[in-house]
Simulated scan of single mutants.
Amino acid sequence: MSTPETVSADESVDRWADVRDLPPSAKLVAKVLEYNDTLTQSELADETLLPPRTVRYALSRLEDADVVDSRFSFSDARKRLYSLKI
């Protein structure tokens, strides 16, 4: 019989299965989104210290893997807000 800790650890590993084969930049962006609920692309670039172009590429890979949600910002419609789905 599994303990609650084992179940949560297994669920955590399964959640990240879609991210495992992605580039390191995408993994870093996903991890930052895990700790911060919702961020813009520029905020992600600031938090990860990655160039904006790399963050754009990472987000596109995460969106292709269907692990990131994006929506328009209500305060500034030019920006998109990203959050982790897993």
Rank of each mutant, 00 (worst) to 15 (best):
A45M: 12
Y35R: 12
D46H: 07
K27N: 08
V68G: 01
V32Y: 01
V55R: 01
R53W: 03
V32R: 00
E47I: 04
Y35S: 13
P51K: 11
K31T: 05
D66W: 13
D69M: 11
E63K: 14
P51D: 15
L39W: 02
E47T: 07
Q41G: 08
T40M: 06
P51R: 03
L44N: 00
S25K: 11
T38Y: 04
L44M: 04
R61S: 10
E63A: 14
L59M: 07
S42A: 13
Y35M: 13
Y35F: 15
Q41L: 14
L59C: 05
A45C: 14
D64E: 06
P52K: 12
D46W: 09
L33G: 04
P52V: 08
N36S: 14
A26T: 04
L28K: 02
A45T: 14
Y57D: 07
S60M: 05
T38F: 10
D66L: 07
P24V: 11
L44Y: 02
A30W: 02
L59R: 05
Y57I: 01
L33D: 02
A30I: 02
S25E: 14
E34W: 03
L28S: 07
D37H: 15
V68L: 12
S70H: 13
R61C: 07
L49C: 15
A30Q: 02
Y57V: 02
D66T: 05
V29K: 00
L33T: 02
S42W: 11
L28Q: 07
V32K: 03
R56K: 15
L39C: 08
D64I: 06
K27T: 01
T38W: 08
R53N: 05
T38Q: 08
R53D: 12
D37R: 10
D69T: 13
R53H: 10
V68S: 04
K27W: 00
K31V: 03
L39Y: 07
S60P: 01
E34L: 13
P24F: 08
Y57G: 04
E63C: 11
S42T: 15
L62E: 06
Y57P: 00
D64W: 12
D69V: 10
Y57L: 04
V67R: 06
R53Y: 00
V32C: 07
Y35T: 09
T40Y: 04
D64M: 05
V55M: 02
V55G: 01
V68P: 06
E34S: 12
Y35V: 06
T54L: 09
T54C: 09
S25C: 06
R56W: 05
L33N: 02
E63Q: 07
L59A: 01
E43R: 05
R61M: 12
S60L: 08
D66N: 13
R61V: 06
Q41T: 13
N36A: 06
S42Q: 15
D46C: 04
L33A: 11
L49F: 15
L49P: 14
P52H: 03
T54Y: 09
S70G: 10
L50Y: 14
P51F: 09
